[in-house]
Amino acid sequence: MRFLTVSGPPSSGKTSVILRVIEALQTRQRKIGVVKFDCLLTEDDQLYAKKGVLVKKGLSGALCPDHYFVSNIEACVTWGHENDCAYLISESAGLCNRCSPHINEITAVCVIDNLSGINTPRKIGPMLKSADIVVITKGDIVSQAEREVFASRVKQVNPGAVIMHVNGITGQGAFELTSLFEEASDIETLKGKTLRFSMPSALCSYCLGETRIGEEHQTGNIRKMDI
């Protein structure tokens, strides 16, 4: 089974791109599973189910969705493998810009859109900077030159990645992206694999449910601004 992690800022077009890739893979008669991770709510699972692929949904609730991702992804991979999927794709929204679901030796895809502003590539952490494939969406809304300038900003923070333009609505570029998905490595389990980048430790009193503001309530890993 080929497994790929797809991540990116909210509404960057992850679901749209994955749906277009699914359509292309289905014309090649591949059985596909998708795992969708989110915080509070998602309807993406229904969109996937409509395409006739296997879907699992995980809502992290009060936890950082990427921490939740790592504790569950191994079981999801086993699930996909047991169901004879030729492909398993995970979708997770990067919400804290510092955590990233990307795993060593597993093809890592980051989806980012042209409308997010020229400084956004710099602000996104390992989710973008350590991805193998960066998909840029919503190119239909801007000119070719603006696409190029945006792509050069992405290239600056991840020069080793393959950068592709895909239109999440019409699917232009999705065939091309699918040919890269076909090169993802075959795995049976995630046992022994490691994250590409450690996730920040959440260790202060507020992580543990503290709500009161004030010096006396702050314990653990606390850092102060210079003011």
Partner: peptide
């Protein structure tokens, strides 16, 4: 090199 149908800009420059 491509000159596409769309000529919009969104960047603040």
């Amino acid at each position: 090199a491509q000159l596409s149908q769309n000529m919009n800009f969104v960047m603040d420059l």
